[in-house]
Design a protein around this nucleic acid. Structure first.
Lengths: 229, 229
DNA sequence: CGACCATTTGATATGGATCAAGCGATGTGG
DNA sequence: CCACATCGCTTGATCCATATCAAATGGTCG
């Protein structure tokens, strides 16, 4: 993985000039750094981006497509940790080795920056350091939210998933899901059958429409929102 | 909460001299900063340390006792996010407001440092910044591990909990659990009845002994370990 | 068109929740 | 020091949401 690195890591100073200070919650400077310094890579559907126990050499930003992080357990079950959509950053682990794998869900274009370049930037620029911290904090919050989700009923989990995807894909009421039912099930801790049944139920309740199995239209968000906290 | 602040936040420079650089995985400088600068506070059993939506004004380190973080959901269920034992740091959120509450499980002594003092230290000293990031990354990893746990069977969850508590309390094979069965259940996403039944089962299998309900002796760790990944 | 894979739908099984009762430890007042 | 109340824990019986097993349907690509 990641051998074709045509890297322009010497543009750090340029970056310092062009990226303004940001609010603590919008870690755009790091994101901007990746835009400016990042090498572009493409991954085919289901290709591995990094594997568990590989060194954490890079940070990643999705340009096009979608990514899943996951762990396969002893018994063969797979838990998906997160989905990443265009514009989102992933791979931000603090240890030396990845503890979770990442794959492209569909054909995907990604920008990568060398981790030690970003970290050495952070050493010189406390704004970058702050944003590295903030971004990891956001990831922590996302994981905590995901953890809470696993305590809820199947309907609540699927509703929460749909509303979150609608939010993040910023495409109004029509969502295009890049991932399979198996992916959704493995993210929500449900079987594909249960995911499918809940979606059918939502459709019958006129909360959603399913023009195709990968496209969801939110017809009545309030039905879904009523299930959440 | 937290009104009796006899704070010595002016010892930052002292700290800079005395805390050496640390490895990325051992964020001891921040911990040391809390030791040196922290104000001591005591909380009675079940007392709130901070509540959801309160401003994130402090970082915390447990000296004596034990702490739980938790969220109460719409339906009245409570999910415990983590337990913190003596020596451990908590309250490290990046947002302006806590998204999760914290309570003392038993009578507990805690050191606190003002968040903005630690952050301004981090601005000047990249070692502190790095450790703030690393510590948040450890918390993220812990949460991911907790998330995986919720996908497993009741026996796996309880076994994992016992082994982790044994590890963290560093008291060999004899664990003293500060928390109730309800706390354990709310951490593992199980009812108290299920927790109790699993413990009884482990006792019958000679994996553990229960001299009292708060004390657990690990007699045969391999029985428990066999359940894990 | 036909083969293949993903999704949906249906029938049954099961792990843990729920409901209910008993037990044991801790503390309090007589 | 004991009687008794209280609270947390354990044990037992039943129920239910979701898993599992199985079959039908639909969508995609050669």
């Amino acid at each position: 993985m990641l051998t074709e690195t045509a890297f322009q890591s010497d543009s750090g100073r340029l970056f310092d000039r062009r990226i303004p200070h940001e609010s603590p919650v919008g870690p755009h400077a790091l994101s901007g750094a990746i835009e400016l310094m990042g090498a572009s890579m493409s991954f085919k559907r289901n290709a591995e981006i990094y594997g568990e126990q590989e060194p954490t050499d890079y940070f990643y930003k999705v340009v096009r497509g979608a990514v899943r992080t996951y762990k396969v357990l002893m018994d063969g079950r797979r838990q998906i940790g997160a989905f990443y959509l265009p514009g989102e950053i992933f791979g931000l682990e603090t240890g030396d080795e990845h503890v979770i794998s990442a794959e492209a869900i569909v054909d995907t274009k990604i920008l990568i920056v060398k981790r030690n370049v970003a970290i050495s930037l952070a050493t010189r620029d406390s704004t970058i350091a702050r944003q590295l911290w903030t971004l990891t904090g956001c990831e922590l919050q996302r994981t905590q939210h995901h953890l809470l989700l696993l305590g809820k009923s199947a309907a609540e989990r699927v509703a929460s998933f749909l509303l979150e995807m609608a939010e993040r894909s910023q495409s109004g009421d029509e969502i295009r899901l890049p991932m399979s039912r198996q992916d959704i099930g493995d993210y929500l801790g449900l079987t594909i059958e249960t995911v499918s049944r809940v979606l059918t139920r939502f459709e019958k309740d006129a909360a959603i429409a399913l023009p195709t199995c990968k496209r969801v239209v939110l017809c009545d968000r309030s039905v879904l929102e009523r299930l959440l906290d």
